[in-house]
Every structure is written in C-alpha cells, then in structure tokens.
Lab assay of single mutants.
Amino acid sequence: MATVKFKYKGEEKEVDISKIKKVWRVGKMISFTYDEGGGKTGRGAVSEKDAPKELLQMLEKQ
C-alpha cells in the first residue's frame, strides 16, 4: 500500500493511505485527516505535486 510523507509542526511523518479518512483541497495543497490509533485523529497536508496518485484519486472520488 502507498504511504504519504509530510511534515506536521516541524516533524517528519508518514502515514499509510488506508488510514486516511477525509481528503480536501486547500489552494495547491491537499489536506487530510487520518486515524492515529487509540481513538485519535491526526492531520496532515502535502503539496499537490508531492501527493501520491492514490491520495489524488481519493480526492476525485469525493
């Protein structure tokens, strides 16, 4: 499965596409929420050019 690499609050993070719950576009950025486990929801964003094609496909399906 594909992963998304991004920075959040200065920390490098990587999340599996299957854990992503919601995806939306903000200008040229793709924002998303994902399941961190333990009932927590994380947030992240990547630029449109750095987003994996699976993430862009999720955006188109909504």
Rank of each mutant, 00 (worst) to 15 (best):
M1N: 13
M1Q: 10
M1I: 12
A2Y: 04
A2G: 10
A2R: 05
T3P: 03
T3W: 03
T3V: 11
V4F: 05
V4W: 01
V4R: 00
V4G: 00
K5Y: 04
K5M: 03
K5S: 04
K5C: 07
K5E: 02
F6K: 00
F6L: 02
F6I: 05
F6V: 02
F6A: 01
F6Q: 00
K7A: 08
K7L: 13
K7M: 06
K7C: 14
K7I: 11
K7Q: 05
K7Y: 13
Y8N: 03
Y8S: 09
Y8P: 01
Y8T: 02
Y8E: 08
K9Q: 14
K9T: 02
K9D: 10
K9N: 15
K9C: 05
K9G: 15
K9L: 15
K9Y: 07
G10V: 01
G10S: 04
G10T: 03
G10C: 15
E11R: 08
E11T: 07
E11Q: 06
E11C: 15
E12S: 07
E12V: 06
E12G: 06
E12I: 15
E12R: 11
K13M: 14
K13Y: 11
K13L: 09
K13P: 00
K13T: 07
K13D: 01
E14N: 14
E14L: 03
E14W: 03
E14I: 10
E14K: 04
E14V: 06
E14R: 05
V15D: 00
V15Y: 01
V15I: 07
V15T: 09
D16W: 08
D16H: 06
D16P: 04
D16I: 05
D16C: 11
D16S: 08
D16R: 09
D16G: 06
D16Q: 15
I17E: 02
I17K: 02
I17T: 09
I17G: 03
I17M: 10
I17A: 03
S18G: 07
S18Y: 10
K19M: 13
K19H: 15
K19D: 10
K19W: 13
I20T: 03
I20N: 00
I20H: 00
I20V: 09
I20C: 13
I20L: 13
K21V: 14
K21P: 02
K21F: 13
K21E: 15
K21R: 10
K21I: 13
K22L: 10
K22M: 09
V23M: 09
V23N: 01
V23Q: 02
V23G: 05
V23K: 01
W24E: 15
W24K: 04
W24Y: 04
W24H: 05
W24S: 08
W24L: 06
W24Q: 12
R25W: 07
R25H: 06
R25E: 06
V26C: 15
V26G: 04
V26P: 06
V26Q: 10
V26K: 14
V26D: 09
G27P: 13
G27R: 05
K28T: 05
K28F: 04
K28A: 14
K28W: 03
K28M: 07
M29S: 13
M29E: 15
M29D: 15
M29F: 03
I30A: 05
I30H: 01
I30T: 03
I30M: 05
S31D: 13
S31Q: 09
S31G: 04
S31A: 09
F32R: 00
F32I: 11
F32H: 00
F32L: 12
F32D: 00
T33I: 12
T33H: 09
T33M: 12
T33V: 08
T33F: 08
Y34C: 02
Y34S: 01
Y34G: 00
Y34E: 00
D35G: 09
D35C: 14
D35Q: 04
D35N: 03
D35K: 04
D35R: 03
E36F: 05
E36D: 05
E36T: 11
G37K: 14
G37F: 05
G37V: 11
G37P: 06
G37Q: 11
G38H: 14
G38Q: 15
G38C: 15
G38I: 07
G38T: 09
G39Y: 14
G39P: 06
G39C: 15
G39L: 08
K40A: 09
K40V: 14
K40Y: 15
K40L: 13
K40R: 09
T41H: 15
T41K: 06
T41E: 11
T41P: 08
G42A: 06
G42E: 15
G42D: 14
G42L: 08
R43K: 11
R43G: 05
R43W: 03
G44F: 04
G44C: 03
A45L: 09
A45K: 06
A45D: 15
A45R: 08
A45M: 11
A45F: 14
A45T: 05
A45W: 04
V46H: 03
V46S: 11
V46K: 05
V46I: 04
V46N: 04
S47D: 10
E48Q: 05
E48I: 04
E48Y: 08
E48G: 05
K49V: 12
K49S: 12
K49G: 13
K49F: 09
K49E: 15
D50Y: 08
D50W: 12
D50G: 06
D50A: 13
D50C: 13
A51V: 05
A51H: 02
A51K: 01
P52I: 14
P52F: 04
P52L: 10
P52S: 06
P52V: 07
K53R: 07
K53M: 12
K53F: 13
K53T: 08
K53D: 14
K53Y: 08
K53E: 12
E54C: 08
E54Q: 14
E54L: 10
E54F: 12
E54T: 12
E54W: 06
L55P: 00
L55W: 02
L55E: 00
L56G: 04
L56F: 04
L56H: 06
L56T: 06
L56V: 13
L56S: 07
L56Q: 09
Q57C: 11
Q57W: 14
Q57P: 01
M58R: 05
M58Y: 08
M58Q: 07
L59N: 02
L59A: 11
L59S: 04
L59G: 02
L59C: 06
L59K: 01
E60R: 03
E60G: 01
E60S: 04
E60M: 05
E60H: 05
E60L: 05
K61P: 07
K61Q: 12
K61R: 05
K61M: 12
K61S: 14
K61Y: 06
K61C: 12
K61A: 14
K61E: 09
Q62Y: 03
Q62H: 13
Q62P: 14
Q62N: 08
